[in-house]
Every structure is written in structure tokens, then in C-alpha cells.
Design a protein around this nucleic acid. Structure first.
Length: 422
RNA sequence: GGAGAGUUGGCAGAGUGGUCGAAUGCGGCGGUCUCGAAAACCGUUUUCCGGUUUGCACUGGAACAAGGGUUCGAAUCCCUUACUCUCCGCCA
């Protein structure tokens, strides 16, 4: 969420910048400013009463110690009066504070200056493309057919045991999954990331900290009896490591990499275009997270972009990078690059990674700060990206690498799979 | 799951109703000393929300696991919850 002091001092900027995200903030900002004003008034008044009450309590203490009981007892009634007033005021303050908070969390993050205007993914700006797009074949099979032919992924079995979107991987299919996970983790470690293995369930505070709550509640699987949520991405536990933390200058840069299963309900987004591996309820992903000082965060974003590109290059997949337009950038993000690989049999671009800078938007929610050399506490910047999400990578690998002799495994993966063809 | 003990500042650890945001030690930071370093000595060292101020700064309030209660006054007493530790039980 945006900082209240920033909104107070830059309300016009907030409104005009959010127009890029097609978000009309004028009315909301007006209510925020009004509520903020009331909150501060209540705070000031309450503080005055409390100051008086503190004074009285101290003098009563002194009077007692001097043995002047009568005088002390006289002051008690005044103290009781103040007490009833502070009760009312502090409940007002509480009311205004929570009202203000509810309003402020409705404001999206401001888009970075480079974010192009636009309504939907059609308006995203393709900034880079690499690799040959092979339009060879109507003879090519889509990955769901290849999966069946080679008996490496079983969707029907998943339907039986769990439900749609929970496939079984089998034999070389399972080993390919394991190989990709290891490859991505090892590459991350080589690039200076620290590997974490996070919990797959998180509590409410964590889900809130990275912004899944309250806005995306319906997208997560829940365990109500224990108040826990299944993570939709490793970003949630990995970023929440730093919730309520004050870092030191020399803790930077923080670069973490984590593999996890990801669970998404994907309510209301099912259809024929999400066949096979294109959209799942449970999938595997390796995620990278960075915590940076504000002045370094955009440099870090470019570094992460180049890193993800290098993974796709090593796998030999044709890909392109899009800078998301205002209408497509997420609520919490300031700037996002999407990576898409070309799937030859489906003749579509499939999104396999999303790399974002959240600036201090998540950090403000999580109270993630660092102390400067001058001793000031300021909010850090958080960034994350998929590096990478497995299912669509597998889909593209199967489809693009199919030959008469089977499916060819990219050279970089062979040390991990132990075989060259499926 | 059963029984007991506990939760205080970056860490260790005092504090059982009044001037305690909190002794002391360690660590950190600044300084003196030194060619430099160590030692010693001196000083400093939490966070949040307000007010005055361009700023430095000054100042009010809040926070001793979390929430509630008793009291003129709570780190200290009472209740609830969470977590940690020890023993027992169960267990990959």
C-alpha cells in the first residue's frame, strides 16, 4: 500500500499516475484525505487528555508518599472524568484508523514512468524477441497428445484421484520435472541467489503481507480449521521472511531462490484454451525474490530480466518479453515484464514468467524497512519473478522438440534427466 | 494429546503496583589515545503515531508476546489467546 504521508503530500500525482492503470482515484483519495484529517485530530486530542491524566496520576503518587491522602483522593474524581473522555476518543481514533486503512489498501501501486497506457494484454509493449519461430507443422502434436503418446503425463488419472488440473507425471515425465527444478535452482545459486525451501502453507498475516489478502482471497485454497492458506507461489513465504524486519545496510542485496508447489483455485478462468498443462490447480515453480535499497531496485529488475532470459536461451526456447501496459500491470506492481515462449503446435505464446518491481508497496504493508547509515528507517523495495514456472515450459519443450525419434531433451538438461530423448 | 515452566530492548539478563522506555553486561556506532590496530576511557545506541519547524531540533502520546480487565497509576495483579522449553504419550 502507498504511504499515507506520500498520499497526503502528493494527492494530485497519485490521481494522475493511476489513470495509467485505468483507475479513477479521485473520489477515493478525497475520502482518504478527509479520514486522515479526522484521524489526526482525534490523535492530537486524545494525546492531550492522556497527558493530563498522566500528570494527575504522578501527583497522586507524590501526595500519597507525602501522606496527604485527602488531597490525593480529591484528584481522583478529575482523573475518572478524563478516563471516560479518553475511552470515547480512543474508540474514535480506532474507528478512523481502521477506516483509513481500509481506504488506503484499495489504492493500487503507482505505475512506473515507463509503463505504457493501455487496457488489456493486447496493449502490452513487446520489447524483445529471440529465437526462431518454427511454423513447420500441422503434423505437430500438441503436448497433451504427446503426453499420452509417450505416457509421461496422465491427466485422467489426476481427475480420478483429485480433480481437473491435478495431473500425474510419470516415468520420464516425472524425471523431466525433477530435472527442470534442479536446473533452475542450480542456475539460481550460480547467479548468487540463496536457496530456500519454504512452507507450503502460510498464515493470514503472511497472505496479507504480500497482497493475496484481501483482494485475491478466492484464488487461494484454504485450511479453515487451522486458519492457513496454501501458497499460490513461493513469493508469499519467501517475501514474508522479512515481514516486520528492519534490515541493516550491509544486509543488501538480498537474493533468494525457492522451489515450491503452487496451488491456485483459478476460479472462473476455465475453458478450452486452458487444456493440458496450460493452466493447473497445482504446479511447480522456482521463484526468485530480491530485497533492495530503493535506489538499486530498477537495476535489480533489469538484472532479473536478463537472468530469466538466460534460462530460456539455455533451454533453446523462442521467447519474447513484454512490458505490461497500465491495464495489465497487477495491483501491487509498479513495473512488470512478462516472458512468453512460443508453443509451436498450439501456435500461441505461453506466459512462463512474470518479473516485477513492487517498489515499497509490499514493504509498506509488511513493515519491511532498513536503517541507513544516518540512522533513518526507510522502506525497502521488493522484487520477484518466476524462474521459471514448469508446466508451460514443459508444454513448449514437448511441442517444439518433437522429432521422429522422440522428444529431444535440451543439452543443458541432460545431466539432470540422465536421458536425451523421450 | 497430558503435566509443568516460561515469553522484558540486537543478544544475555535485572525489575512483583508509583518518577521504569526500563538497571547491568555484551554487541553496534561516535570520540580520545595510536603510524595503524588492540586495550583502556568518555559518549551514544528501540519503534510507531501526532504537534511546532524549511531543516537541525524541540515536544505530546503509545509499545515489556497479542488482546481484554482491575486501578488515580500496570513490565509488575486478573482473564483469554498465541508461541517457546522440559517431561510423558504418539510418530516420518
Amino acid at each position: 500500500m502507498l504511504q499515507i504521508g506520500f498520499i497526503r503530500e502528493n494527492s494530485e500525482t497519485v490521481i494522475s499516475r493511476l489513470k495509467i492503470k485505468n483507475f479513477d482515484a479521485a473520489a477515493l483519495v478525497a475520502r482518504i484525505l478527509e479520514t486522515d484529517e479526522k484521524r489526526r485530530q482525534a490523535q492530537t486530542q486524545l494525546d492531550q487528555y492522556l497527558a493530563e491524566a498522566n500528570k494527575i496520576a504522578k501527583s497522586i503518587g507524590q501526595l500519597f508518599s507525602q501522606g496527604k491522602k485527602d488531597e490525593a483522593n480529591k484528584m481522583r474524581s478529575r482523573s475518572a472524568e478524563i478516563k471516560t473522555q479518553t475511552k470515547a476518543l480512543s474508540s474514535d481514533l480506532e474507528k478512523y484508523s481502521s477506516a483509513l486503512h481500509e481506504l488506503v489498501v484499495q489504492l493500487p501501486n503507482l505505475p512506473h514512468i515507463s509503463v505504457p497506457p493501455g487496457k488489456s494484454s493486447d496493449d502490452n509493449e513487446i520489447i524483445y524477441q529471440e529465437g526462431d519461430i518454427n511454423e513447420k507443422g500441422d503434423t505437430d502434436l500438441p503436448h497433451w497428445d504427446l503426453a499420452k503418446k509417450h505416457n509421461i503425463i496422465d491427466f485422467e488419472l489426476g481427475n480420478k484421484v483429485t480433480g481437473a488440473g491435478f495431473p500425474f507425471y510419470r516415468g520420464k515425465g516425472a524425471r523431466l520435472q525433477r530435472a527442470l527444478i534442479n536446473f533452475f535452482l542450480e542456475e539460481g545459486i550460480k547467479a548468487g541467489y540463496t536457496e530456500y525451501q519454504p512452507p507450503l502453507l502460510v498464515n493470514e498475516d503472511s497472505a496479507y503481507g504480500t497482497g493475496q489478502l484481501p483482494d485475491k482471497e478466492g484464488q487461494m485454497y484454504t485450511v479453515p480449521v487451522d486458519g492457513l492458506y496454501l501458497i499460490p507461489t513461493a513469493e508469499v513465504p519467501i517475501t514474508n521472511i522479512y515481514r516486520n524486519v528492519i534490515l541493516k545496510e550491509n544486509d543488501f542485496p538480498i537474493k533468494n531462490v525457492a522451489y515450491s508447489n503452487c496451488f491456485r483455485r483459478e476460479a472462473g478462468s476455465w475453458g478450452s484454451h486452458v487444456r493440458g498443462l496450460n493452466r493447473l490447480h497445482q504446479f511447480d515453480k522456482v521463484e526468485i525474490v530480491q530485497i533492495r535499497k530503493p535506489e538499486e531496485s530498477y537495476q535489480a529488475l533489469e538484472e532479473m530480466r536478463e537472468y530469466v532470459a538466460s534460462l530460456l536461451r539455455k533451454l533453446g526456447l523462442p521467447f519474447r518479453i513484454a512490458r505490461l501496459c497500465g491495464g495489465d500491470v497487477s495491483f501491487t506492481s509498479a513495473l512488470t515484464y512478462d516472458f512468453e515462449v512460443f508453443s509451436e503446435a498450439q501456435k500461441r505464446w505461453l506466459e512462463v514468467s512474470s518479473v516485477s518491481n513492487f517498489e515499497d508497496f509490499q514493504a509498506n504493508r509488511m513493515k519491511l524497512r532498513y536503517k541507513t547509515k544516518e540512522g533513518k528507517s526507510i522502506l525497502a523495495h521488493t522484487l520477484n519473478g518466476s524462474a521459471l514456472a514448469l508446466p508451460r515450459i514443459v508444454a513448449a519443450l514437448l511441442e517444439n522438440n518433437q522429432t521422429d525419434g522422440g522428444i529431444r531433451i535440451p543439452e543443458v538438461l541432460v545431466p539432470y534427466t540422465g536421458f536425451e530423448f523421450i
